[in-house]
């Protein structure tokens, strides 16, 4: 029995030890530590949340950029396609116009050639008439006036000309 009932000298020391230790730990030692533990837990939770938020943001941005990139690529392709079309039509126009001009030049050249030919023919006819009159005058002696001869030869040349002319 002596062993089971606490001795007074030990009971007192233990009661005081409990009271002192409990108040000390409860009021002074534990609060800063538990506060720090809670604060650390909060900090870690916040950091994780922030990291998660950042990751989500980054992913959203990446998606946005991808969309933008795709759009830009499409846009560029469209622009290039349009450019090609414009160039194509411009080329066609230029070629057509060049052809047209070339044809016009050709026509004009022909006309000029024709005109030159006609002028040359007229000049030739005149020269031939003069020469003929002169030759005939020499052959038959100037019985015919110059004017009459001319008229005669010109009529003849015109006949010849209309036969050989174009």
């Amino acid at each position: 029995m002596e062993k089971i009932i606490p001795l007074g000298v030990e009971l007192y020391v233990n009661l005081v030890a409990f009271a002192v230790l409990f108040v000390l730990l409860w009021k002074f030692a534990f609060p800063p530590i538990t506060k720090m533990l809670d604060q650390r837990a909060d900090t870690i939770r916040e950091s994780l949340e922030k990291a998660e938020q950042t990751r989500v943001d980054a992913e959203r941005l990446l998606d946005e950029y991808k969309v933008h990139m795709a759009e830009a690529r499409q846009e560029a392709a469209k622009v290039i396609e349009q450019g090609r079309k414009v160039a194509e039509t411009m080329k066609d126009d230029i070629v057509a116009k060049a052809n047209e001009e070339a044809a016009a030049v050709l026509v004009r050249a022909r006309e000029e050639i024709q005109a030159e030919k006609r002028a040359a023919m007229a000049e030739l006819q005149a020269s031939v008439a003069d020469l003929s009159v002169a030759v005939a005058g020499k052959l038959i002696g100037s019985s015919l006036s110059d004017a009459e001869h001319r008229k005669l030869v010109e009529g003849y040349v015109a006949e010849v000309g209309s036969l050989n002319g174009n």
Partner: peptide, 23 residues
């Protein structure tokens, strides 16, 4: 026992003073 109680007290008072976010 009293020595052990003192050790607990000193240990936790030091521990509380050194409490920081990065332990």
């Amino acid at each position: 026992l009293i020595l052990a109680v003192l050790l607990v007290a000193v240990f936790f008072i030091l521990g509380a003073r050194r409490a920081s976010l990065v332990p």
